[in-house]
């Protein structure tokens, strides 16, 4: 597993998201109202909607395609929907955002 520098906290708008393209696919990195960061696979478990384009509220994002609500903390869809978007570790160190990616296969 590798920690990769992807930018600074200020690069992501509050209540917004940016994407990182990786060999594992597109990853959405979210910044919430309380300046926490979360990373999920940028595909809604429902119909692959780009979660980074959704409205971020609390620690959740609403998918722009069919309004599924996904928890940023664990990637799980909020009931009554079920499904999970893969979650990645992301952390903030000295103002730098670090995203953890699995090694190349």
């Amino acid at each position: 597993m590798n920690w990769i520098q992807i930018g600074k906290l200020e690069d992501i708008p509050r209540q917004g998201a940016r994407t990182v393209t990786t060999p594992h696919g597109e990853i959405a990195v979210f910044r919430t109202i309380d300046d926490q960061v979360f990373a999920l696979n940028n595909r809604c478990p429902h119909k692959n909607g780009p979660l980074a384009q959704g409205i971020v509220h609390g620690h959740r994002v609403t998918c722009p395609l069919h309004s599924w609500v996904i928890s940023l903390e664990n990637g799980e869809a909020v009931a009554p929907d079920t499904g999970c978007a893969h979650r990645y570790n992301v952390k903030l160190e000295h103002g730098e955002l670090l995203l953890q990616l699995p090694d190349k296969k």
């Binding site: 590798n2 992807i6 930018g7 992501i12 393209t21 990786t22 060999p23 090694d103 190349k104």
Partner: peptide, 11 residues
């Protein structure tokens, strides 16, 4: 635009 493009994974 994407925040970043991670082209290649370090081993």
């Amino acid at each position: 635009v994407p925040l970043m493009a991670v082209a290649e994974m370090a081993n």
